Amino acid sequence: MASQSLDGRRIAVIATDGFEQSELTEPKRLLEAAGATVDVISPGDATQIKGWDKKDWGKSVDVDVRLDDADAGKYDALVLPGGVINPDNLRTDEKVLALVKAIAGAGKPVAAICHGPWTLINAGLVKGKKLTSWPSLKQDLVNAGANWEDSQVVQDGNLITSRKPDDIPAFTDALIKALAA
């Protein structure tokens, strides 16, 4: 893990029901341990969202900010956890896409893991970029103009992507390094 301090940094995690449990909770824990403030942002009025833990429903996580109240300018980076249900719902939400585009457009790090890059496709951020993802998204990313690579972490400009829960330590470390730079 990177030893840089993220004191004073604020990170947005956009998620909804069906996020892969470890892909939200573990990066959140590691980023907070590095000193960052992490806000879970979700569409709708729910005060909690429910994770998916490998093959069944997992634990709930508190929502810190409603999507309608989220301000891209307050955040230094964005994390998009995977799972299948979560990004499949988020990628068709125009308000989610607007927030993703605003943070990415400001040159801030945007980190997506597993199926999270689906949202990057719909936000129009992948063309000409080198990315990775869960293997089943390879063709979606290639069709959208990305150059897909089977690596633990791929960083291209401000986009940081990883494949799966096993990659979380390297994924989070890459984000911490990008924020500390």
Results as ranks from 00 to 15, higher is better:
V142S: 12
W148V: 01
P117L: 10
A34Y: 03
C114P: 01
L141W: 08
L131A: 01
L131R: 02
Y75E: 02
A106D: 14
A104Q: 05
V79G: 02
V142P: 09
A34Q: 02
V154C: 00
K130C: 02
G116W: 11
V96M: 11
D76T: 09
V153R: 08
N143C: 03
P135Q: 09
E149I: 06
D45P: 00
V100I: 03
L90V: 06
L97S: 11
A123E: 08
A112R: 10
D76E: 08
A111N: 01
N143M: 07
D53E: 08
V96P: 10
R29W: 04
G73E: 14
W134K: 12
N89I: 02
R91H: 11
A34S: 13
S133H: 07
T132P: 04
Q139P: 04
K59Y: 00
L99M: 12
L67G: 08
G83T: 03
K127S: 14
P135L: 10
G124E: 11
N122R: 13
K130G: 08
K130L: 05
D45T: 14
P109H: 07
P87N: 10
P87L: 08
P135Y: 13
V126M: 10
K127E: 15
A36D: 02
L120H: 11
V65Q: 08
Q48M: 06
V38D: 03
V126D: 07
S151R: 15
L30F: 06
A36G: 03
V61D: 00
D69H: 09
A98H: 00
L90H: 04
I85G: 01
P43D: 09
G73A: 15
K129D: 06
T92I: 12
P109T: 05
P135R: 11
P109Q: 07
D45Y: 00
L99H: 06
V110H: 10
T37S: 15
L31P: 06
S133F: 04
A72H: 04
D76S: 11
V61Q: 10
T92V: 14
I103V: 13
I85D: 11
P117Q: 11
K95N: 15
W57K: 12
T47Q: 09
C114H: 01
G35C: 11
R29A: 15
T119E: 15
K129I: 09
D62A: 14
L137T: 01
N86G: 04
K129S: 06
A70K: 12
L131N: 02
L99D: 06
D45W: 00
A98E: 14
A104D: 13
Q139V: 13
D39C: 05
